[in-house]
Simulated assay, not measured.
Amino acid sequence: MKRCHIAYLACTAALLGTGLSAAPAVAAHSTLVVRPGESIQKAVDAAEAGDTVLVLAGTYHESVTIRTPHVTLRGVGSGTVIEPAAKKTAKKPAKANAKKAAKKAAKAAKKSARKPAKKIAKSCAEGGNGICVLGTKTKDVKGVTVADLKVTKFSRTGVFGMATDGLTVRGVNAADNGVWGIAEERSVRSLLRDNYVHGNGDAGVFLANTIQEEAGAYDAKQTLVSHNWLEGNRIGVTVRRLRNLTVARNYVSGNCAGVFVVGDENKPKAGHLDVTANQVVANNRSCPKTERLPALKGSGIVLTGTEKARVSRNWVTGNSGKSPLSGGIVLFKSFVGVAGTDNRVDGNVLSENSPADLVSTETGKTNSFERNSCRASKPAGLC
């Protein structure tokens, strides 16, 4: 029996060895290291799927575009800083050539005016963005990761994704950008986690279907915005015309408004999403009105024009203001007249919000408020 058992093991080992030798070789992934003074973009352009571009501590004055799938762009923490390139100052023409140059420019302008205008796509830098992860109209770029770095002072967005699938933005310090800290459009299955997003001109995190045209809500396919610290922005998180995502366990404080979930009259309607277990504290900065919104101050969580959104288990405290959107958790009929329907606000803990902990200006009767711990509501009876 012993001999038979040994023979069986030897035969099995031989078969396994044959199978292993026949298996295809696994492609080796490379780490491309970028040092101060070197170009991040050159390393990204050289990277192949599965590679990591590791950017060492230092300040890098450039914008970076990633189009290759499954590439990781990673720094070593906030010591890796990406800022805009210095603007070049144009040299003034010599006086002798000034008239000649002006005449030439006028002639060129007149010639171009006769041609039909063409829409030219801007590069990441020309668009005022720091890091861009870009797919195409027909194909999403998959599996890109941006992690462990600081991106700051760009006129538009720190990290911007369009047409992405499985984009991860993790451990990023997105600070003092002109519009958004981290933003994406037409993207699915994203993970935005453990980022510090502060001092940006509009939303710290902005997620949308598209901002270029009117369209129905986009299925974000379980995108997750989680464990981020968002402060000192106009709005902490804006979710616009999207479905099927979760905003969970974020700390949102010191903004003019905490979390905005926005829909409109387009179909399908925005909603079918969760805002859960966030700490939304004292979002009492004062921001002037814009074309889309009135002046903001003291808004915790706002739903406007949404359906079947659930706001649950959040701690919402100290949000106080006199804007139409002020209050702890606010259901507000959208500015294009669309009522929110079948939204559920349950299990939240609210205190010291003004004009009330729970506010609803909705005319619809299908929204529900259940098991919330609060003292005051408008209208009365929601607590």
Rank of each mutant, 00 (worst) to 15 (best):
A13N: 04
A14I: 04
S21Y: 01
A22N: 08
A22G: 04
P24E: 12
L32Y: 01
K42R: 14
A43L: 09
D45F: 08
E48H: 08
G50C: 04
G50K: 05
V55R: 12
G58S: 05
T72V: 07
A86D: 09
K87G: 15
K100A: 14
A101G: 07
K103M: 07
K103Y: 05
K104L: 14
K111G: 10
K111R: 14
R114G: 07
K115V: 15
E126F: 01
C132H: 00
L134H: 11
G135Y: 00
K153C: 01
R156Q: 02
T164G: 02
D165P: 02
G166H: 00
I182Y: 10
V188F: 01
R189K: 12
R193D: 15
N200T: 06
G204I: 10
I211R: 15
I211E: 03
D219W: 04
G232H: 11
N233R: 12
G236V: 09
G236W: 01
V237G: 03
N244Q: 03
A248F: 11
G254F: 13
F260G: 05
D264H: 07
K267Q: 14
P268Q: 06
K269T: 12
A270C: 06
G271V: 09
A277C: 04
A295F: 00
S299V: 02
G300N: 06
G300E: 10
V302C: 02
S312T: 15
N314L: 06
T317A: 14
N319V: 02
S320C: 10
S320G: 15
S320I: 12
S320A: 15
G321S: 09
P324L: 05
S326M: 10
G328S: 03
K333L: 04
V336C: 10
V336K: 13
A339K: 14
D346F: 13
L350G: 02
S351A: 15
S354W: 12
A356I: 06
V359K: 14
T361R: 08
S373A: 14
